[in-house]
Structure formats: structure tokens, C-alpha cells
Amino acid sequence: MSNGAGDRRPGDWSAAIEHLVGLGQRAGAQWEAGWNEIATYVRQRLTGSYEVDEFGHDAEFTDRIWLPLTRALAQNWFHCETRGVENLPRTGPAMLVSNHAGSLPVDGMVLQSVVHDETGRLTRMLGADLLFRTPFTGTLARRTGTTLACQSDAARLLAAGHLVTVFPEGFKGPGKPYTQRYKLQRFGRGGFVATAIAAGVPIIPVAVVGSEEIYPNLANAPGLARLFGLPHFPITPTFPWLGPLGAIPLPAKWIIGFGAPVPTHELEPGAAEDPMIVFNVTDQVRESIQHSLYALLAERGPAFRNDAV
């Protein structure tokens, strides 16, 4: 062979090229091997031969596409650490109750990834109707195991033996200003506790530290929120100034703590109908989350630090 860079100037030139071509070939070999897998996936998608459950959860999509993405986000971007993973049940239904922050539900994605990595179980989440009203987000949410936050769906998931995650602060959590960070807001009307009591499943308090700093909410623009039909319109250091780039979360350091389960199966029958018992359990869960939040905050120190690994 006489053409190419090789015959003009052998030596270091060709060594460099061979290195590059070798890299390319290895990648090529991987593509070829990976191609069959990709082709199988594409075939299944295009011909509709994949399964979804009654809530629209697509297990294959979640395992192959979604969880690797959320895992990268949790581990490489937020360097998320965990505490108290022994409190996560390996089998049987349970309700995870977490604080909620950040203008986008990034905490849900990270929590889902962390729980999956620790237990191999996918926690199903409950989301507000706004999530399902909005194009694309609702579809993605259902595919990845989220369903509407309502008593009927929560009970159905628990009856099927799932881990179910709720964010009882609702929009009040993500909507609060940065100065109020890690101060738990009111817990709805306690509906989640009543559902857990009725199902007799343990409630696991979850404290997420780090989610408050990813989109520091400096101010709210209620006029704009009304204009776009959103529960709140946050003004952060990057949003709306940088447009869509403002949706990139700041790489804060995260710690997620799982508290000791609050048992509900020992309560008397009909406890779910007794507002006093429901309020008491709600307070107990809320206090537990608030205490762990302060403890984990002190342990973490500053949110942005160069040596954070």
C-alpha cells in the first residue's frame, strides 16, 4: 500500500495514527457487539412488544435507559451519600416519606436511583396532577413508575407490595425561598399517613440534604407563575437568565438519610379513620425528618466544596 500518511513519514506519525485507529476499531467492535442489543430494543419499541403495568410503568425502559441516567446524576454530579440504608425493607410494602425541594423534581430521581442501588427495588412515586397535565413529563413519569398522588393509587401500589415514595409537602416544598431551606412545610392533610395506616405498612422517614442548593430560589414571580399556569415561578441565579440552561442543577453535595421505620400495623383497626391518631403519626414522621435534616446538614457542611468526593 502506498497511499496514506504512513509512507510519507513513518515513525511517530504512524504510531499515533495506529493508536487512533486502534481506538476506533475497538469502539467499532463494541458497536457491532452492542448493535444487536440496540436493534432488539428498537425492534421492541417500534412493534409495541414491551410490557407496561396498570400504572403505565415500563420496566425495561426504566432499567435500561432511565436508571443509568439517574445513577450518573446521583453519583457523578451530586456525589450522593446515604445513611441508614438498613432501614429500607428488602421485601414487602412500605411508604417512604421525604422532604421536597428544588424547582424540578430532581430529588425524586436521585432518591429512586439510590433506593434502587441499595435494595434492587424500584420505588414507585406519587406526583401531582400538574406533572400529568404537562406534555412529556407525565408520560416520562408514568414510564418510570410514578403515578398520580391519590389515595386510590397509593393503596393499590401498597397492596401490590411496592415501595411507595410520597412528598407530602407538595408544591409548598419546592416553592419556598432559599432562606427557608430545610424547613419542612406543612404536610398536606395527612392523607398519606391514613393510607399507610389503612394498609398497615411501615412509614420510613427520608431526609434529603442537597436538593435545596441545586436551584437556589432567590425570589418568586407570582405574576409569571399565573401566566404559565404554574404553582410558582422561581428566580434562581441561573433561571430564567440562562434560559433552558437554567434547568441544569448546581452540583451540590447530597446526603440522603433513611430513618427508623414508624410501624403502623400495631395501631387499632379503624385508626386510619381517627384524625387524632393520623395527626400524631404525621407529626412523628415530620419531626423525624426535620431532625435528620439538621443532623445531616451539620455533617455535610458547605454544599459546594472542591474536596467533596
Binding site: 485507529v21 486502534g22 476499531q25
Partner: peptide, 13 residues
């Protein structure tokens, strides 16, 4: 194509 290009470069070297 990529792998034959590599063989070619090897041969030239």
C-alpha cells in the same frame, strides 16, 4: 472499514 484501515497503517509501518 475502520479495522481494514488499521491493518493498512500497520502494514505501512
Amino acid at each position: 472499514t475502520v479495522s481494514s484501515a488499521r491493518d493498512r497503517v500497520r502494514g505501512d509501518a
